[in-house]
């Protein structure tokens, strides 16, 4: 069964980073690592925010040595308490939408503070003692009953929540386009 995921529309995206800000704020309120789970990727035709596609047989969940990434229903969720930040899920992700962040746990509030974006292999000795590395990936805001925050806040509706019905519609369109290309006239309507 295909899962729900979010796909951006490249023609509509302005690159305003509102989705990144909303993602960060939503996860900070929840007590998770406060950093965006989307990655604004520049291309020749404009930028586009990318995030986890919630693969059916998630390679990140397969390779995780501590079983921190688990499939919960329709969402592939990363358990931040279990994660040791080894970064093998980053290497296994086909679309590169998992990153390792350096986070610091504060005892008083229990909130993990992210101070800087550091790659797993490029960290200094001082950072290593203070920081804890945690992988971050999109979890579709599974704790929010309203659905993903990034989809709600996008000013141009460039982010789209794709479900089974949409996939069926797109497949139908592809079949119709193929049928019309091979000369079957009635299919295009």
């Amino acid at each position: 069964m295909p899962r729900q995921f979010i796909i951006p529309d490249k023609a509509k995206c302005l690159g305003c980073c509102t989705c990144l800000a909303a993602c960060m704020l939503t996860h900070r309120e929840e007590g998770a690592v406060p950093c965006p789970r989307l990655f604004l990727t520049p291309t020749a035709q404009g930028s586009v925010p990318l995030q986890c596609r919630q693969c059916d047989q998630a390679p990140c969940a397969e390779v995780c040595p501590v079983h921190a990434i688990e499939v919960q229903g329709e969402v592939v969720v990363l358990n931040e308490k279990k994660c040791v930040g080894c970064g093998i899920c980053v290497l296994a992700c086909p679309i590169g939408c998992i990153e390792i962040q350096a986070a610091r746990q504060t005892a008083a509030t229990g909130i993990t503070l992210t101070t800087s974006i550091l790659l797993p292999l490029t960290r200094s000795e001082q950072d290593e003692k203070k920081m804890r590395k945690i992988a971050v990936k999109c979890n579709m805001c599974y704790f929010r009953p309203e659905g993903p925050a990034c989809v709600k806040v996008c000013p141009t509706e460039a982010l789209r929540l794709v479900d089974e019905e949409d996939i069926r519609f797109w497949n139908l369109q592809r079949r119709q386009a193929y049928a019309s290309s091979i000369g079957f006239q009635g299919a295009a309507e």
Binding site: P8, T43, L50, I95, G96, E99, Q173
Partner: peptide, 24 residues
């Protein structure tokens, strides 16, 4: 490929999808 290159490849492939797929 590294993570950043995987992302830019994915973003680039969205252009190709845009030509074929129209939102419902």
């Amino acid at each position: 490929t590294c993570t950043a290159c995987r992302r830019s490849k994915t973003a680039h492939s969205l252009t190709l999808q845009l030509l074929k797929i129209h939102p419902p």
